[in-house]
């Protein structure tokens, strides 16, 4: 199976670079093992500033977003966001504009910390009431918050702009939706998305020109060789097994790309949970042009992107990288 570009990892970074490449006329294949970090989405994309190209691409895929401003965390605090999904509570400024809020309590659903949320909003001088789904109609509050779970999405469908979604604990519906829309759009414009599969073998070729990836093979497709001119490695961090670890070292499982992980395991972690954790900064190494380094040598057609470079990279950083890499291929 031959493609112009094969992308390993069908998360946010992988899908966006795939879409960009497909729109540029390339034949792209994304190989993805299960779902992604998107499934812990807060309903917003983190980062310094948005990027109109990014916003436009998302819009084409059917994902409408609002740029800048602040999102509301499940605990009721405002945090800056580069892009927020339409339909989610969004504030232009660092202070809540509205004075009265209502929070919908769904039966049997514990994913939204309503007590904490109510307390934080009250502490900011807002009037907060807790209502049942039946009480949405006729509720006088300026803002009605519903948790971003399946039942919450149903309410959003029913009541439209009258209610605002707020992110909750996993399982994360906003992440699922973003993923599904990007995936559908990618396929609609001709992309091939191989789901539930992982690369189990890669073949690198070394000659006088240097090192390059020749082909990859996956678990489900057996001995089928998947060959491309370019490969983008967007497989994520430890969470999605883009990086793996054991008792004594860290490695990148698909190509064996070099990592910056400390030799000493105890250096991967900090003692306090709320301290900056060193493992969040572990990532694969590239040369200045963004080519992956394997045993110190750049692989001329392999480009790591996304959280595999470091788990604390913001969504916007990753999205910008995805677009930049794609445009240069």
């Amino acid at each position: 199976m031959k493609y112009n570009t094969v992308i390993i990892g069908g998360g946010l970074t992988g899908l966006v670079s795939g879409i960009q490449l497909q729109e540029q006329g390339q034949r792209v294949c994304i190989i993805s093992f299960g779902q992604t970090l998107l499934h812990f989405s807060s309903g917003s994309f983190s980062g310094e500033e948005s990027n109109t190209d990014v916003q436009a691409l998302l819009k084409n895929a059917g994902i409408a977003t609002v740029a800048g401003g602040y999102r509301l965390t499940p605990l009721g605090e405002l945090r800056p966001a580069a892009l927020t999904l339409e339909g989610y509570y969004h504030s232009e400024t660092a202070e809540l504009k509205e004075k009265s809020f209502a929070i919908v309590r769904l039966p049997k659903y514990l994913g939204l910390p309503i007590e904490f949320l109510q307390d934080t909003l009250t502490a900011q001088g807002r009037e907060v009431s807790i209502i049942t789904p039946d009480e949405v109609v006729g509720c006088p509050a300026e803002v009605i918050l519903v948790p971003a779970c399946k039942a919450g999405y149903d309410l959003k469908k029913t009541y439209g702009k009258r209610v605002s979604l707020i992110a909750a604990l996993p399982p994360s519906i906003p992440g699922q939706h973003i993923h599904a829309k990007l995936q559908q759009y990618f396929q609609k414009i001709g992309g091939t998305y191989i789901n539930g599969d992982k690369v189990v073998r890669s073949t690198l070729q070394t000659d006088e020109k240097g090192v390059r990836v020749q082909s990859v093979e996956t678990q489900n497709l057996g001995d089928e060789l998947i060959v491309a001119d370019h490969y983008i490695l967007a497989s994520g961090s430890f969470q999605s097994e883009g990086l793996q670890s054991n008792y004594d070292h860290v490695w990148e499982p698909v190509f064996g790309v070099d990592t910056n992980a400390p030799e000493d395991r105890t250096a991967w972690t900090a003692l306090d949970f709320f301290e900056d954790q060193p493992y969040q900064h572990i990532g694969v190494l590239t040369d200045e042009a963004g080519h992956a380094l394997v045993e110190g040598r750049p692989v001329s057609n392999l480009y790591p992107a996304g959280h595999i470079l470091g788990a604390l990279r913001t969504d916007i950083q990753n999205l910008n990288d995805a677009l930049r890499i794609a445009k240069n291929l």
Binding site: F238, N246, Y247
Partner: peptide
């Protein structure tokens, strides 16, 4: 922390994501 490797390290990263990132 003393056994943070493999799935336990992945779990830790997930916990960080949920509590520090999503919940702030």
């Amino acid at each position: 922390q003393p056994v943070a490797w493999g799935s336990t390290l992945s779990e830790a990263q997930l916990i960080q994501r949920v509590y520090r990132d999503v919940c702030g």
